[in-house]
Amino acid sequence: MAHTITGKKKLLGRIRRIQGQTSALERAVENEDDCIDVLQQIAAIRGAVNGLMAEVMEGHLREHLAAPDVNEQTRLADAEAVTRIIKSYLR
């Protein structure tokens, strides 16, 4: 079973917290809050998204690349896909 299914409740909790943070950011901009407060909220959102990405990536690597039952061709194709995603994420 995929890690995004087995860890679904935890992942959804993280996602919902990120949604709350983005809503708070939107309110801060609408209310013309101080720039420092807006920047701090953006930094918090970025940290939360990075944490979510790391958690999903770790589960994926463990279950789809490091699993002993994955054949070499599948492992190489998946490694290539993960590499593309990481490069896109880091842009």
Rank of each mutant, 00 (worst) to 15 (best):
C35V: 11
E55Y: 04
E80A: 15
G7T: 03
A43T: 09
A79E: 15
L11W: 04
I85P: 02
L25T: 05
E63R: 02
I36P: 03
R16M: 13
A2K: 02
H60Q: 11
V70P: 00
D33L: 06
Q19S: 15
L39P: 02
L39S: 07
Q21H: 15
I18W: 00
L76K: 13
E26G: 03
H64Q: 10
G13P: 01
A43V: 11
V49L: 04
E32Y: 11
V82E: 01
L61Q: 05
A79Q: 14
A28S: 15
Q40R: 15
L39M: 13
R62C: 12
N71H: 08
I85C: 04
D78V: 05
R91F: 07
R27S: 15
E30K: 12
E58V: 04
L65G: 01
I45H: 00
I86T: 08
N71A: 12
L39K: 08
K87G: 01
E30T: 10
N50H: 10
A66T: 01
A43D: 13
E80P: 02
H60L: 01
D34I: 14
T83Q: 11
L76P: 01
A67P: 08
I86A: 09
C35G: 12
L52A: 08
R46W: 00
G20N: 05
N31D: 14
D78S: 10
G7W: 04
I86F: 08
A24W: 04
D69G: 03
E72L: 15
E32M: 14
M57G: 01
L25E: 03
R17N: 05
D69N: 09
V70E: 01
V38T: 08
V38S: 02
Q40N: 13
I86Q: 06
G51H: 04
R17K: 11
Q73L: 08
D33V: 09
R17W: 02
A2Y: 07
H64P: 06
A67L: 08
T22S: 08
L76I: 14
Q41L: 10
P68T: 05
R84Y: 01
E30L: 11
E63D: 12
T4Y: 01
C35P: 05
A77H: 13
M57I: 07
G47W: 07
L52W: 02
H60A: 00
I15V: 06
A77R: 13
R27E: 14
K10S: 02
G13A: 05
A24S: 15
I36E: 13
A48C: 11
R17V: 06
L12C: 12
A2V: 00
R84N: 12
M57T: 07
R46F: 04
